[in-house]
Design a protein around this nucleic acid. Sequence first.
DNA 1: ATTATTTAGTTGACATGTGAATTGTTTACT
DNA 2: AGTAAACAATTCACATGTCAACTAAATAAT
Lengths: 135, 135
Amino acid sequence: MVGILKTADELSRAFSAVVEPHGITIQQFNVLRILRGASDPLPTMEIGARMIEKTPGITGLLDRLQRKGLIVRVRGQGDRRQVLCGITERGLDLLSRLDAPVAELDEACVQALGTAQRRELVGLLETVRSTIASR
Amino acid sequence: MVGILKTADELSRAFSAVVEPHGITIQQFNVLRILRGASDPLPTMEIGARMIEKTPGITGLLDRLQRKGLIVRVRGQGDRRQVLCGITERGLDLLSRLDAPVAELDEACVQALGTAQRRELVGLLETVRSTIASR
DNA sequence: ATTATTTAGTTGACATGTGAATTGTTTACT
DNA sequence: AGTAAACAATTCACATGTCAACTAAATAAT
């Protein structure tokens, strides 16, 4: 258990080290990647659903991204409760500069494990997660 | 990578669910366990070293534990820079009430994996961690 | 001894997270 | 239509985390 928590902590620390010199945090980076992945603007709740955290936190995250000019928010035209968020040119630029170093770190972490080991690890983690879920 | 982060998140969520009804958070619980484990009071930095986080955060954590009467802080007699933290009777009582449910959760997560798989998982995580460290 | 350097702990500023309560909107029901 | 229930976002209050700067105390260097 402790091993999982420690590894996760060091992982996010390593990703932070790559991303923060560019002025954003990992969570902000994740939001940007989600928005780039979805060609159309997404409502706040949808972003929240694709992240680990709850919606209230997302609002602040989006506030900060908007302040930096990396996203735009527009009140939904169909459903006026929604606020649609889209990535800006500047956001896309930033992401494109981060793609290479992030991919490099990703591969570096995974490369130390063989393909079989990778699969093994993913399987074990899934077992743990499903055990937690079924309690 | 994502699997590790998600599993860690759900793990800490599960432990929170056990511990928070008793009025403390997992981090506060961890501090209390560390203090119970060390028979003598520990300086702030030493507690910080045994936790994942940096010292500044520890100060606040200790503030809140002290406010709840679960720990006591005394200025060090030998080295007057240090602040020694000790767990109170009330802290020990709280821990003793949490021991059983926490152990139960711990075993439940681990039981789904055989002994061999447990060792395998620990090993794989260590490989990942050492890879990260050596970058 | 005196000064410079380290060390322990704290404070301040900011980014995340979470739960509870709120505001507008939309949908369901009668 | 008209009201109740559900939903999307947000605000508030609080607990974590991190970095940079600061205070006080202890050590090292000259």
